[in-house]
Amino acid sequence: MDNTQTIQPYKETFSIRRFARRNGTQIGIISVFFALWITFIVSAPNTFLSPMIYKAFMSTIPFFAIMAMPLTLAVIAGEIDLSFTSIMAMGMIIFILVYDATSNVWVAFLAALVTGLFAGFLNGILVVKLGIPSLVATIGTQFFWRGAVLVLSQGKSGTLVYTKESLLRPILVGKIGGELPMQMIWLIIITIAAWALLNRHRFGAHIYLIGDNENSANLMGINSGAVRIIVFSLIGVVSAFAGVIASLYVTYFWPSLGDGYLLRTLASVFLGGTSVFGGTGTILGTFIGAFIIGSIEAATVAVGLTGFWTKLIYGFIIVSSVAMHAFLRKRLK
């Protein structure tokens, strides 16, 4: 076939039905978002009509939403990672130890990121080279890194006030114009980067392909092992980054840092429409999913329920969104 001839650009005629069919899950999650939002406003107008609550969301949601982005890539590739909450803390304890040795927050920051990268890489090796299912491998490393943090910190918390003197803190968790939290900017940057990687880069195309049919991808020359290792490494480095911003925000380190984020991060990904069976999922879905998850805690309290309800609701969201995918898959078969 002659590939040199100029090809007519392809322009698809727009059809609403086709658009709806292709973007069904994204339209679904956006509808859920607005439905919930209206419900919140109606049931707790004092809270949800004040800008205060939205400022609060922008400061706290990025801590886990940032990690939900590379986690989305892993789930699309047919994998899972449960160790990232411990990697957050592991990166941070290395930050503290390196700062103690060098008195340089930038070197400490870099060391934290490298630690995260290494921890993620290790997950990738366990899964790809040793063939351990990622669910099991990352439960293992979750305990391992948490244990390492406890040993290294002697279980003690510590202050990070020294970071207030450096530029690192305002860059990571400062407020633009005293209003817009920097972590929200970082979330937007990481979201756009993840989106571009997934949808516009060949690496992202390979993520979808191996999650869809790994055997086909391998037959067509895609090195699925390398793709997986890179995805786990990305989760590692981003988790360490999230650990640093979550700690610098409160200028405080605590050894159980990250513990509360596991459920929220996973729920954001699954609620966002990424299939636990691999091969489908979107960054936009995860982004909206994270904001729904992040607002549920505030909403339950504002509506007058106790905080105990939030875990139940997160759990319900995970089970029902995963069940929905299982149901859709059965119907398609």
């Binding site: 392909l209 869809d212 049919n213 086909s216 037959l219 489908t280």
Partner: peptide
Amino acid sequence: QERALAELQ
């Protein structure tokens, strides 16, 4: 023989 396609893509 197995065609090597990815159904959802």
